[in-house]
Write a protein that binds this DNA or RNA. Structure first.
Lengths: 109, 109
DNA sequence: CTATTACTAAACCAAGTGGTTCAGTAATAG
DNA sequence: CTATTACTGAACCACTTGGTTTAGTAATAG
């Protein structure tokens, strides 16, 4: 499986997107993270595992708890893939400019 | 299932992303679309169905063939969701500006 | 030491996924 | 009319997913 496959698949679940949203506010222990969800901690733990295997979340064992931290970098590739199609939903000057600006940056690398 | 769920799930398959890439070059009949793939036309037809149910592809019956056309608009919501996390992988001024510019536009609506 | 907390592993389950083949329909070519 | 083409539906398969419960381990609190 490609990275984009696992990234998009990981994002294709509302619970996992909610976990990401929560982690954007800061590092959180798994137990705290699981609280608001109407499912077992085991289920949340499995979702975190999917996210961590996708590289979207870093998990660090600390004492008896697991601290989860967001790593958004895999999203970068996802947004870059999507941006290639931006002209298809919004073909105004701004989006074109943004598109070619991105390409320019790629060349400059 | 939410729209973002079906959008991200549909994008989480390399064959479906390849179909999208192909359709970006222009409307294509299903048979033509299926040719390059190492799988049955039935399998490709199923993938197109997933994409069409996600609203990413419009299918139009024309004679005995089905013409597939890309509709990238659902990607807009996906990219907007992802953009909220852009600061987490690239916290420079440009990305922050882009972020708040988007927010401003939301308010102006 | 004991009880509690935080978590994981394993077994299980129903439903979904991504592929197949086979059979059928509808449109077109000859 | 007949053969071919383009496709879909249905049945089937192995595997995955998203949840459960149960049982266990490891760390901490008291």
């Amino acid at each position: 499986m490609q990275q984009l496959d696992v990234t998009f698949t990981a994002l294709g679940d509302i619970t996992r997107r909610a976990i990401i949203a929560k982690l954007a506010e800061g590092e959180t222990a798994l137990s705290t993270l699981a609280e608001p969800f109407d499912m077992s901690q085991t289920a949340v733990s499995k979702h975190v595992r999917v996210l961590s295997e996708a590289g979207l979340v870093f998990v660090e064992k600390r004492g008896r708890s697991r601290h989860c931290r967001l790593n958004a970098t895999p999203m970068k590739e996802a947004i870059e893939w999507l941006t290639d199609y931006e002209t298809f939903w919004n073909d105004n000057f701004a989006s074109l400019a943004r598109h070619f600006d991105k390409k320019k940056k790629d060349i400059e690398k």
